[in-house]
Design a protein around this nucleic acid. Sequence first.
DNA 1: GTCTATATGGGGATAGAC
DNA 2: GTCTATCCCCATATAGAC
Lengths: 230, 230
Amino acid sequence: MARKTISKKPTTAAARRRKASRPNLPERILDVAEELFGRVGYGGATTRAIASRARMNVGQLHYYFESKRAIFEAVVARHGTEVTERRRQLLQEAEARYPHGIVPLEVLIDALVRPLLMAEPRAGSQRRTSMQMHARLFTDPDDTASIVRADIYDETNALYVEAIQRALPNIPAKTLYWRYYFMMGAYVWTLLQPGRLESISQGHCDPADMETAIREIVPFVCAGLAAPVG
Amino acid sequence: MARKTISKKPTTAAARRRKASRPNLPERILDVAEELFGRVGYGGATTRAIASRARMNVGQLHYYFESKRAIFEAVVARHGTEVTERRRQLLQEAEARYPHGIVPLEVLIDALVRPLLMAEPRAGSQRRTSMQMHARLFTDPDDTASIVRADIYDETNALYVEAIQRALPNIPAKTLYWRYYFMMGAYVWTLLQPGRLESISQGHCDPADMETAIREIVPFVCAGLAAPVG
DNA sequence: GTCTATATGGGGATAGAC
DNA sequence: GTCTATCCCCATATAGAC
């Protein structure tokens, strides 16, 4: 997506030293942007604010990224890659652990959901803003970003769909697709709208408590996926 | 929210006639805005575009609504009121139909979900953009709007939580809150990310087919809500 | 009360100096 | 590679015509 090639590997000693002393401007931009997008949303985050927090000016920002949207997409891509990598890894481990690679449903769902819900907040982020940030990466702000997302997540999703089909051989494919889709909604929402849980429960449930969230969502989703087909 | 009082009831014959001939500018603005916000998102919709499609100029727009955000919130409020009214009505009818007001879970979920998923697109909207629009009203663009939303939906949600508790007396309250919350995610997502279903299912499922969506989501959610408590 | 024209300031982007 | 000055669009505010 970026217009220019960025940060070629330094080859001289001087360049290496320079890189070590002030490492990776693009990364710093992405860290700051991720935090800001999460806290105030795409529209609320100004390039000026991103630049100043990354201790640079707008011109420099645009040297590394073509546009604000490109920054957003890079953040989405970075985060998505981390999550899907972890998902792939957990699935592989689980399939190795069970005979014939038939993993119990609860284990599959846990492996799918945990990398997203328990993603570590980056330095400088609070867990709560980090949650909303991750969630916003799934909905902000329009369709071009959703294509980026699909490219990143779809491959791993396909792996999990297959694994779930093996765990639930009696559910017709079409119904399973719908259910997988509903499941995505449930766990993304968990990050997206913490306030709604608080008000529904009149403060009795803490939406930031991700361990509880996972403990609650796994049986919900497993039962939903395995529901009798009418 | 609006700064000025809007469209007092016309009292003279002339005023009545005027009102009939060019009915309800504010409504027309909301119709257009709803369609545009849905198609291109909050950030993508400019007040100029809204004004021009509503066949007026920006100044006129600002005569009726204090700000772009106020327009958005009015759209959210109008839509939310329609949905919650219908939900309340369906719940009331269902409770009258069943002895002791204990409504079967499937009937409850259908009544909750249908008013949102089957909301009629307004004149000039395609069903598909209308879907996304309704969905965006749940996520765009930041927190002030989400407070408006909560005010509108929470009361009806509380009614449904109680009804579900009566239908599922064995589920502890806290767990039920979580599950109700996951359910919201599932059905909002159904509107929000139609593209994801298409790619997961490799085109075998049609996310715009809301009758199927309802037929599929009801058993999924019912099983999830009623899942054994671990 | 309704609408037009215009002003103000913020914000994304860019050209070009260094 | 870095930074400043500037452009242009957009949301918003306001003065005043009708």
